[in-house]
Every structure is written in structure tokens, then in C-alpha cells.
Design a protein around this nucleic acid. Sequence first.
DNA 1: GTGATTTACTCAACTGAGTGGATTTAGGTA
DNA 2: TACCTAAATCCACTCAGTTGAGTAAATCAC
Lengths: 405, 405
Amino acid sequence: MKLRASGLGKNNAYTKRLNRQTVLGLLRRDPAQSRAELARVTRLSPQSVSNIIGDLEQAGLIEPAGKVYGGKGQPATNYRIVAERGYGIGLHLDRDFVRATLIDFAFEPKARLRSTLTTSSAKGVQAALGRLIDKLITKAGISPDLVWGIGIASPSLRDERVIDTESLEGSLWSALHSYEIDRRLAHDKGLPVIVENDANAGALAEATFGKAQGLRDFCYLFLAHGFGAGIVHDGALFQANAGEIGRLQIVHEGKTVLLESIVSIEHLLDRLGASGSARDREAGFAGLVEARRKETEKWIAQSAPHLRWLVGTLENILDPETIILGSDLPEWVLDRLIELAEPLPHNIALRSTRTAPRLQKGLLDRDMIGLGAATMPLLATIEADPASRWKISGTVFDVFHGLDD
Amino acid sequence: MKLRASGLGKNNAYTKRLNRQTVLGLLRRDPAQSRAELARVTRLSPQSVSNIIGDLEQAGLIEPAGKVYGGKGQPATNYRIVAERGYGIGLHLDRDFVRATLIDFAFEPKARLRSTLTTSSAKGVQAALGRLIDKLITKAGISPDLVWGIGIASPSLRDERVIDTESLEGSLWSALHSYEIDRRLAHDKGLPVIVENDANAGALAEATFGKAQGLRDFCYLFLAHGFGAGIVHDGALFQANAGEIGRLQIVHEGKTVLLESIVSIEHLLDRLGASGSARDREAGFAGLVEARRKETEKWIAQSAPHLRWLVGTLENILDPETIILGSDLPEWVLDRLIELAEPLPHNIALRSTRTAPRLQKGLLDRDMIGLGAATMPLLATIEADPASRWKISGTVFDVFHGLDD
DNA sequence: GTGATTTACTCAACTGAGTGGATTTAGGTA
DNA sequence: TACCTAAATCCACTCAGTTGAGTAAATCAC
């Protein structure tokens, strides 16, 4: 039966795809489940689940993972995702460098690379990214055919550059948009390419690897050169243009300014008198921050009240389950920021059903954003209800293809 | 085939229900469409649509609405919703009064009533609401059996009262929550009762009757005694605890205060020196506002910058298609507020794909909130993808019941 | 006018999704 | 050893939407 895509009406083929994706999604999130267990969760009949499991196994997406003894009745056969069945590549494009990560279908990181980009021409960047991807695949020791796609996270994603264009000129993400590097890369590699902003990728990473696992409503604040937020509501990411928290107007010392003119690494580095390569993340502004600890503390003291205000604002508008603060700053800076943000405003977030902290530190992995980016092609390939409706260059694989004939 | 509700897996029965709801939803939003047209939109086969149309007609939900001549080929038979097939009742509970509205299945208002509540005991309120509903049904001249449910909109909806409890004590909505009037009313009337906050109900009303028709992402700001927002994202309402914009912290004349301590009718009335019944909406604070125009202008001048800030803040966080300002204040006050809110902040909302104004005035119907509340039981009964996952007391009718045997 | 053309709609056979009851399997338990 | 329980399967079945042939009723071209 043909699947009539993108229509409002649903047919059996659609249902089948949905159920396959649902079962696969459950196995991905919680490894090792039996047919009977899946039937209970999905409320499908054991027979249907059995058929689906058979299909997925035939497609090489899952495999048996031993039997469970100890209970009454016949022991159940557990199944798990076949980690080596597919891979996702994530590129984190920052101002001065690129980090590339590769994760397998079990969402385990397999290889990482970083590279400082010397060229700033769009064509040069395109070529450099292509080489980096090849190198990453080689390093992981996998077949290029098994890569399902490429996710790109860049600091700013706007369909139009109505603001601060000058600060973007000549940068990587300028090339990304004006030169359509994503489309060209998709063509070069024959793979789907998905672009997101860094904060959204970070939110995906926290949802997959970090503090937001299992949460359906949360905010991820990414304190970088700028200050952005990835907002997840009802399990889905907000579109790229939302979450521009750095551009919120605040009053600082009597003057109305943008939040990120205070709360951003950019501003911290200004205060520390950093210049040239000392501003680069790779060259290690972390060292500078350590060396100028006193001045950094002052910045923290100044920023914390604004963070407190931001938490209250986001809570009042969005009522998330938790707010996660991520950054490449040293851990003690984040700890201190969160510490000084207390006491958080008295508002609805104080409800007794709360389980997660109102404000917490994110994972500290430096490849966080790249990891999130790497999940995108995997999610786009297998998820029934993808975290977001991404703009995708190229065509996503149909992992179920060939099962029906 | 049995529908296995609330499971993750889908079966044929689920698909059938979904397709029926989809077709019905299309006919509701755009009256008079033919089978062939619906088949094109839904991407279902003409045969399937024909079957569905047959079912819906047999259930009395739709009826033929004439043939379309003029084009080539056989003229198409249009169908439309049967307006008299069902009704929704909306109650707008404010501090000092209740407005009740009844709309038919074509979402046309059929009867309105208002009542000042003298009693404040929970039991008394319950009884009064019951009588008001009966009166409304009588006034509309319809059979009580045809009412599909009751929607209640109240100024504040919080699952717990962690804030400002004293200002809620003894009020209608205090009774609503602590005494569970919704549950009791559902039991009394044998009807499903759905509770929402007033701003969310207003957002529903704008989406159904007003400026937000066809929009999937917008904010509705409801400037009342307090200041709340209904947020619609991807066609769905945010849960009740979100949108508490009145509790955002702003800096006013050097002091940090809550937004609604300035931008709210409560504060305006304070400034106008209103007391007692002059504060009531029904007794007409509008007259007072007119009489004290100069002082009102001052309040507007003071509030507008905060409104400007709020628009920028919401845009940066949520990136809505439009922001709608609703209120019971006189029209000129809203016009002036919006006028003085210009120039709006320079941000991503300036994108060229914009079609709706960034900030606009909502419908001025005084029953706006009640109308939105009245849509809730109708939507809950027929929508495939309900605007929100409401907490519903009682059981929603199954309008398709009896079709399958 | 007349016939070709176009479009709406229907009939009846069909495909294939999940279902349900009987059955087999394989461990625990008395 | 005999019984119980739960997992998994066999197979006939139900009933979604689909398909393709066919009919009805309008407009269009000459």
C-alpha cells in the first residue's frame, strides 16, 4: 500500500510506519525490551509487535539481546538497537574552529575531531568541512555508506540577517547561509544535512545524553560568545528563530542594554582585556579566566542577578520542568553563577510536583553541541515524532525500505 | 475493531477516527467543501472520503449544502456542518460577575447572559452557575441534550497557589479550585467541564473568531485586572501555568516591580482612585476611564514602554507570527497603547516573510473570553488534534458512537 | 444540437494493517 | 513429576483505505 505522504489523511501504510517507528524509538530509549513488554507499552497486540520486531530485525536495525530468566512463564527474549547499523555526524561550527563528532545508532560517541579553520572563504570552508568529515569517518573506522547524515550546529541561525549583520560578516555561519554550504555539502557527500543553531543542538544533547533525559519541557541556556536558548516544549524543539534570549532588554546599572552585552563570554573577555587569539575558545580562554579569577568573579557577581531574572522570566512565560545552563566556561564559573543566582524568584515554578532543579548546570562535555548536532540525522531517520521539523538538505534514508515487497 | 486508546501504537480503528475527525475539522474551518476537494486536501482516495462523508452525514454532523455549477464536469455536492447538531457553553468567571455564552456547532454565538454573583460560598457559586446554565439553554431555545459540554475560563489557574494566595481568597476561582466546582458541575449536569485560564480562552477565541484565524503561532495578551498571556505554538495552547506575563519583573522608575503592578486595569483603577463598585467591570469602569481621560493618558504613557519591552521579549523568546492585545478597556485606550508602543524593538520579528502586524488589537467583543471558553467543549468533542490536552471533568461525548456496528 | 471532454462520484473486488483465539514453548513452583 | 504461568507463534479473521472500472452530469467545441 502506498504511503501518501504529507496529506492530512492517514492510511494503513502510514500506521505501519508509525508503529515501526514507535517500537524502534522505545528500543532506542530503553535498551533491551521484550516483545511482550513492548506490546503492553504500545497497546498493540503481541502478534503485531512480533511482526514489527521481525521486520526491524530483518532490516538489521535490532537484534536479540539474551533471554530474561527468573520470572514465571517462558523467558522473554529482549531486543536491542544494533549500534553499528548507522551513524550520525555532528559539526559544531564556531567562530574560529569546528568540532566534529560521530555517534552510532545507539547514540554512543565513537570519534571526535577538532580543527581550526584558517580560510574564511565559503568555498574553502565547504572543502575543509568535507575533508574533516572524511577524516572523522576514517578515524571511526566505519564504512561511509553507514553514515545516515550530517548535523550542523552554528552559533546563529536566522533566515534573514536583520540584526547585527556586521558582526557576522566573513564568519563561518555567514558562509553557511549566504553560500548555502549545507546544500552543497549534502550534494558533495550524498547525505542529508540538517542545520540548527547551537543552543538548540545543545538542548538535543541534554535531552539525549544529559540532564533533560525524559523531560518534555525544558530550556537549555547556552552561554557562549553570545547567549542563546534552546526551548523544548511537549518534546519538540522550538523553531530556530525562537530562544534569542541574548537579545532580551535588561536594565543594567540604570541603562537599558541587551542581556548578552553583559551575560556572554564575549563581554567577559572584554572585561579581561583579551585580544586576538586569547579570545579563541581553542586557544583556551579558559586559561585566561583562571588567571584573572578576581575579575571573573566580578563579572559573575554582575551577571548572576540577570541570570536570576532570566530564570524567572522563562518560568513565567514557558513554565519549563527545568532550566539547564551550558557553557564552555570552567565548571567553577557555572557553579558560582548558579549559586549566586539564588534565591530564585518566588513564582509558579515552586510547585510541589517539581522533580528537577529549577536551574542546573548542563553536561560539561566540550563536544556537547556537536553531539547534539550528530543526533539530528539519526532522529530524522528513525523518529516517528521528530524533535523538530528541520529544514533538511538532501534526502533522509528510508531505513524501512525494501521490507515491503 | 476496538480502539485501544492512549497507547503509543496505532491501529485501523484509530486511523478511521482520525480521518473522520480530520474531514470534520476541515468542514468546520471552511464551510462547504465537496468530496473531491476534501480528497485532494487529505490525500485520501475519493472513495474513502466518500465513505467518511457518508458516515458523518448519517451521524447528523454534516449535511449537503447545494451543488457547485459553473466548472467543467459534473457539479460537486458541497457539504457543511449541521450547526444545530451540538452546542457549547462557555462561562467567563471574573472577580465580580459571570458571563455565559452559548455557541452552536458552526461556532456561531446563539445566546449570551451575564450575572453578578452575590454569594461567594463555593456551594452557592455552584448552584448559581447551574441555574445560569439552565437559563442560557432556555434562552437559546435548544434541547439540553444537545449541549456537548461546558468550558470555564477564570482569571487565574494554578494547580497550586504558591503565590498571592491572599488576593484569591474568597473569590470565584478560589472556589473553583479548592471546592472543585468543575467536577461538581460536571456531575450535576452530566456534561464534560473544561477549565482554562482567561488568557488561554481569549487565545482560543481569537483563533476561532478573531485576528488569529489560521495562525499556528501567536500570543494573546489579556489586559484585565491582571495581565496574562495565552500562547499558541504549532497550533496548540501552552499549558495553563505558562503565560504568566504579569509576573515578569521589570524596572519602573528605577525600581524592580512586577509588570502587572503597572500594566493592569487594577493599577489603572488605583491611579484613578476607584473604589468599591467603581472597580467592577460590570458597573462600568469604562465610564470612569472616560471621565478621567487625562489621568488615563498618563497611565498609558507609562505603560506603553513596558508593552514595547514585552513585545520584544516575547518575540525574542517565542518568535510568534503576531501578538494580539485584548482587553475590556475602551477601544481608544488600546489604540493609544499600541500607538505609543511604537517603535517596536529592532529584532528578528522584522523578517520579510511577516504578514500579520507584530502587535495588534484583538476583537472587542465583551464576551470574548466566554466565547473562547465555549469553543473548548466543541473542540474537545470533534478535534483530531485538540488545541490543548485539557483536564476534563466528566466524559466527552463520542459523536461517532453507533456508526460502527 | 451533438459529441467530446471533464469532473464527481460509486460499485465491487482487493491489499494489507492489526486482531483474537487456540496452541506451543519453556521456564518456575508445589 | 505434575501443574502453573507467561512468552511467543499459527492462522483465520475483520475492516481500514485503495484500486480500477464504470456511471452521471455538467461544460466546451464545432
